[in-house]
Every structure is written in structure tokens, then in C-alpha cells.
Amino acid sequence: MIQKQFAEKAVEKLKTDPQVLGLAAGGSYITNELDEFSDLDLVLITKEKISGQKEKMLEYASKMGQFIDGFTGEHVGEPRVLICLFDNPLLHVDIKFVTAEEFKERVENPVILWERENTLSQIIKTTEASWPKLDFQWIEDRFWIWVHYITLKIGRGEYFEALDSISYLRMNVISPLLQIKNNQLPKGMRKVEFNFEKADFNNLKKTVPEYEISSIIRSLEKEIELYNELRKKLYPGDVVLKNELQKKVMEYFTKIKTKVQATDEK
């Protein structure tokens, strides 16, 4: 696989640098699920902190292969990651720059490609990887206000705004909850085509609207329906449900839905 070939060459380029403590690979590399469409997730561990210094991050990336271009990952909340494109062959590579101390806090145990003096092996042996748990209360505290916001956009006729907001709920609420239901980590839309039961996948598809008011309303209704079902199935008893808020929002949604549909039929 081109990803493994790239990783092997990167090791040879980096291991002579005394600042480098190791290079590891995460994601699909761990489970040996790489295919021709996989990107490569690398973790570069250094003695001194490199992240936050974009020029140094780019310098290290340029050592690994035929570097075309890259940018840091603030948009996904991870400025320590340099998102890169390499050539010959064309390959997407995400490189996370961390120190040994930062490597102790990780979401998975990556495959160690190379390390200096067992540094990474010792850290993995003495610390635990932990994927952030989905905060059910955080979702419940926000969900119905999000629904109200989308209803406002529907009522005003801002359908693109409604479409984007429905997509946000799918990505950040509905799909992560369905991931948990299907015994997966709550990784948004990651591999839903392969990991979800058929019924769950079909329900998720029904949350994807067209640019047409009745379709937008049906999709939002489906998200509300799925959320109520998943909340009942997955949430522990200590989650405080916003029942009064839900009631008021749904009354308003019904009012706006009736008004919009009456207008649309004229």
C-alpha cells in the first residue's frame, strides 16, 4: 500500500534527526483497513514542542516526501495537526506534532513505526488511550434550542441556512448517537455506510433534505424523531431532560410548519 511505503520512507528520513523521538501511525493503519482511498495519520513525537510553529511543521513535512502543500488544523480544533498533500504518489497525510508528554494523552494507541530508546512503547505501557465520551447532557441542553433556530430559518425562508443546520445536527448529534447504538466510537459520519445496521442507515438517509420546503421539514422531523428514540435508548437516568423546553419548541415548530405548508400550497 502506498501509505505504508510512504511511512517507511518517512522513518528513514526522520530517524537521523536527534530531535525526533519517534513516529507512529493511527487511524486505519492500526486496524489494517487501509485501502486506495485511505489517508495516512501520522504522529511525530519530538523532544521540543514543534506545534504552533508552522514553518518548522512545514519543514518536517517536507523531509518526509515530495511535499506539495499543507495547512494547520484549527478548523477541526487541532492546530497541532498539519494536513498535507504529497506527490508521487498523490497522498493525503495528516501529521500531528506532539512532545512525549503530550503523547500521554491520546485517543488511540497508534502503531509505532520507529522510536528512540523505547520512548513511545514505555508511554503506551504506562498510560491509557481514551476516546472522548459523548456528553449526553451537553447535547440535551442544546438540542431543542437548535431545533427552534432551524424552525426560525424555515419560517423566514432561509432554506440554505436550514439545510446547513440540519446537516450540523446530523453530524454532531444523530450520527454519533447512532454510532454508539451500533457499538462504534462516536466519530460523526465516519464509515456509516459500512458500520450501521440497514434500518439505522436508512433512517439516517431520511435526514438528508432537498432544497424544497416539504423535504426540509420532513428531514428535521426525522431528526427529532430519531433523537427522541436514541435519547430514550442510550441516555442514562442522570441526564436531565428538557421536557418543558421540548414542549414549547415543538408547539412553535408545529405552528410554523402549518403556516409554511399552507403558503406553499397556494
Rank of each mutant, 00 (worst) to 15 (best):
A129D: 00
N88L: 04
A199I: 14
D164A: 06
L152R: 14
D200H: 01
P176M: 10
W138R: 11
I217K: 01
D87L: 05
Y159W: 15
Q184F: 04
G155A: 03
S167C: 11
D164F: 13
L82E: 11
A199K: 15
F160V: 14
T207Q: 07
Y168E: 14
W138G: 10
Y168S: 06
I174M: 06
M171E: 13
R156T: 07
F143R: 04
L85I: 13
E193R: 14
G188D: 10
D87Y: 04
T127L: 05
F201W: 15
Q122C: 04
L177N: 00
S215K: 07
I180M: 11
E193M: 03
P176H: 10
S219Q: 03
E210T: 11
V173G: 03
T151Y: 01
E101W: 04
R142V: 01
W131V: 15
V111Q: 13
G157C: 10
D135Q: 00
I180L: 15
D87E: 12
Q137N: 10
P186N: 05
T127W: 09
L177Q: 02
N195W: 13
E161A: 09
S167Q: 08
V192F: 04
F194H: 07
K96H: 00
L185W: 01
P110F: 09
S219H: 01
E101N: 02
S130E: 05
K206N: 14
L178W: 09
N202D: 15
K191G: 01
I217Q: 08
E212K: 06
I95H: 08
V93C: 02
I83Q: 10
Y149V: 02
P186R: 09
E161N: 06
K206F: 04
P209I: 04
S175W: 07
F136G: 06
D164N: 09
L90I: 14
N202C: 00
T151N: 03
I213S: 08
N118S: 12
T127P: 09
P132F: 00
L85F: 12
L152Y: 11
F201A: 06
E115L: 12
N203S: 15
Y149N: 14
L169H: 13
R218G: 01
R106C: 04
R190C: 07
F136V: 03
E140G: 02
D87I: 01
N118K: 15
R190V: 06
W114E: 08
K206G: 03
G157Y: 11
E117V: 05
L134Q: 06
K191A: 14
E193V: 05
N118T: 09
V107T: 15
L82C: 09
V107G: 07
H148R: 08
N88C: 01
I174C: 05
R116I: 02
T207K: 02
W131P: 13
C84L: 11
W144V: 00
M171A: 09
V93A: 04
